[in-house]
Design a protein around this nucleic acid. Structure first.
Lengths: 188, 188
DNA sequence: CGTCTATTTGAATGTACTCAAAAGCGGTGG
DNA sequence: CCACCGCTTTTGAGTACATTCAAATAGACG
């Protein structure tokens, strides 16, 4: 039942069976239906989540009521409010299931314990975070350098098939444009 | 001579003297004058750099010849082409000294050796990268949510005093606006 | 002092935005 | 099975903000 996360881990590092046992014994399985919130603003964030099935979105609602999609997560992605989780603050994000989904959750204190006992996971998350940081840097560059159409096409190729799982409304908010504008560029 | 990086490390983790000795023995001191390039595109990236004195910028030149500032680095910041460094690719960035600067460099192979011998540095860089990732996420949100003036003021407060060390031209490129536009918002 | 670069100002253009409304689509219940 | 409801997508018109191109001014550095 933890096979997908084990496979993911082994893509990056080579843990011993004991390391893996330590890690997976702290995971909990969660099932959420489409439309259900895993997290809402103001919550004390105790967990991060690995998606084994389904699709979710994390978004921020600004002071004008505008929604900004921080990330989508499909199978084999981690999702959470990383700022709140790591800095022990209350959440500023909504995390909502876009499809019926299955997740594995890891608790903050458990993760600290894992880091202490099995530093290989320090390495695993260092590598994941480095990759995420690099990808996010490219997202900034892309927003500065490219127009809406180019960014939309880039988005579709970097999250394959996601345009069929997610509304244009959400994609527009991810790209930082209005749904009207995204619609227009798709037509012409 | 490595005191500033040691102090920085101790802000995040608690290495043993042996760990520190291992780390600092692999550092090399570098002095660069204003205007000198530490890195140019197409170079095989072997090092990342810790700034002990001075100020540098990392930027990308796109296919239209436009410059995009990826990051500035002042005292106690790490700078480098993280994508190229971590993925063993050739550089896509320019890194240039804005002031006469002093740096400590760490070699890729040395760093892998350090990770193996002293996993505490795996932790150090995991924490730094996590913080950088979170800060960068805020930069994306800020660009979507705020206008140029608000972003400029935010920039000045998050990099204190940097507006006196860096040209408006560079700040505009960092913010993803034209120098003309930045000039206008500062007047009115 | 002269040159080179950075900054400011001006005018015209363009892209994306807002507000508004219509059309399309999917799901639910009668 | 169809009618209705809510949400998403599309279309339209007017507006705002940043851009481009051009030129003048100011500042830094040798």
């Amino acid at each position: 039942m933890h096979s997908s996360v084990i496979k993911h881990i082994k893509n990056y590092v080579s843990p011993t069976p004991i390391d893996l046992q330590l890690f997976t014994s702290d995971l909990n399985e969660i099932t959420v239906s489409k439309g259900v919130f895993l997290l809402k603003p103001g919550t004390h964030v105790q967990h991060e989540y690995f998606v084994t099935k389904g699709c979710l979105k994390a978004y921020y609602v600004d002071h004008k009521g505008k929604r900004h999609i921080i990330q989508f997560a499909v199978e084999n992605w981690w999702i959470g409010d990383f700022d709140a989780f790591n800095n022990r603050e209350s959440s500023k994000l909504h995390i909502e299931a876009i499809e019926d989904s299955q997740l594995l959750s890891i608790n903050y204190d458990c993760l600290q314990h894992i880091y202490k006992e099995a530093p290989i996971f320090e390495r695993y998350f260092r590598i994941l975070t480095t990759n995420a940081f690099i990808a996010q840097g490219k997202r900034i560059l892309s927003a500065q350098e490219k127009n809406t159409r180019e960014r939309y096409l880039e988005f579709c190729s970097s999250y394959p098939n996601i345009e069929h799982r997610v509304t244009n409304y959400d994609i527009a908010n991810y790209l930082g444009v209005t749904p009207e504008n995204l619609s227009r560029i798709k037509v012409s």
